[in-house]
Computed example of a mutant assay.
Amino acid sequence: MSIGNSPEDERPFEDVSEEARPSVGRALKEARLAAGLTVDDVTSATRVRVAIVHAIEADDFAPCGGDVYARGHIRNLAKAVHVDPVPLLARFDAEHGGRPAPTPAAPLFEAERIRPERRGPNWTAAMVAAIVVVIGFVGFTAFKGGGDDAGAKAHVGEGSTPTTGTSASPTPKSSKPADAAPAPSDSAIAAAPQDKVTVQVSAANGRSWISAKDHNGRMLFDGLLEKGESKTFQDSSKVNLILGDAGAIQLYVNGKKIEDQFRPGAVERLTYTKGDPQVG
């Protein structure tokens, strides 16, 4: 009988502790659950996206974008769930080829912090916006100026005697509030085509939602008309209107003012055709 260790004792020692130890992702997940935290809680604390947290807990580090970023995520997640990140980083380095060489620059990873990006002024966009504003202002001024000149000619054509000085300009009506929408000029009324229906909607007494359609049901306008604004619609045979607050609206149809006393807040559905205004 030999004296010494048996063959069984001479077998290499098997260290099962390494295999029994949970993986990096599983250790982080178990620590999170033990701390009573959800993935959203961890995301709020670390600024690491929810999808990346789930991937790391499943030991999938590909979404991290590299080992350097993965190590940074592991460190931040470990701190958030109150565990020591050093053993987890050592296990990760052992499984992924060792710790990467240090980078002399500033910290490479900052847990994907969301920071506002500072950009210089976009001079091209500013220039385009300025050009659009200037063109719109010039067009509006030309339109208003043309309407005033035509209004003066219409007064002369109706038989009124033109006078010299400032009396040639229309006398302002003091009975209306200063901020009320001006009534359409006589030239606009006289210029209404006889073979079409022309409807002008003015928000003289307040703002109102309006909708306008032509005889085919095609939408001409659908929106809010602010106080002082006006819209003009034309169609070959018929214009259908819906007024959200009829009491705030003044209507001019085919050159004539509609004298209906609409109640404030009342919703009116109106239809106008060629010739004398007809309410449908």
Rank of each mutant, 00 (worst) to 15 (best):
W209L: 07
T38P: 05
G65R: 15
R113N: 14
D59C: 11
A150F: 12
A212C: 13
S23F: 13
D214A: 04
H96T: 09
L37W: 06
I3D: 08
E18Y: 06
D148S: 14
V128M: 02
P7C: 10
A27I: 05
A183E: 10
Q261D: 06
G98C: 03
A126M: 13
P193T: 10
R32N: 14
P264L: 04
S174G: 09
A246K: 00
E95S: 07
P22Q: 04
A90Q: 12
Q234A: 01
R119V: 10
G217T: 14
A190S: 11
P12R: 12
A212T: 05
K176F: 06
G136Q: 14
I135Q: 09
K79N: 14
P162H: 06
Q250L: 02
W123Y: 12
T164D: 07
A55L: 07
I52A: 09
F137Y: 10
R11C: 13
G98S: 03
G255E: 04
I189V: 04
N76Q: 08
M127K: 12
P22M: 06
E57V: 09
A105S: 15
V199G: 01
T163P: 02
D40Y: 05
N205W: 06
G157Y: 07
G146N: 11
Q194R: 11
H215R: 10
Y272V: 00
S6L: 13
D67R: 07
A70Q: 09
I258P: 01
A203K: 09
G165M: 08
Q278H: 15
N216S: 07
M127G: 12
E229S: 03
R119K: 12
G146D: 10
L224F: 11
N216Y: 15
S169E: 06
I258H: 06
S23P: 15
L33V: 08
G97R: 03
V42N: 04
F13K: 15
A34P: 09
I131K: 07
K213I: 02
Y69R: 13
F262L: 01
F140T: 05
D179P: 15
T171G: 02
E259V: 13
I56P: 03
P7W: 11
G151F: 01
V81N: 10
V134N: 05
G120Y: 12
D84K: 05
L225W: 08
R207A: 15
V201M: 05
I52G: 00
D276V: 09
L243C: 00
G139W: 08
A191W: 04
A101V: 06
A154K: 03
T103P: 08
E95K: 13
E158H: 15
I249W: 01
D235N: 00
G206W: 04
L243K: 00
H82S: 14
N254E: 01
I74Y: 03
D59G: 14
P193C: 07
M1C: 04
G275V: 05
S187M: 01
P121M: 11
D60E: 15
V24N: 01
R49E: 07
N76P: 01
V138S: 15
N240H: 13
V39K: 12
A246N: 00
K173I: 15
A150V: 12
A190H: 12
V24M: 03
D260T: 06
A204R: 09
G139D: 11
T163D: 03
I135T: 14
A101W: 07
V239R: 02
S23W: 10
W123P: 00
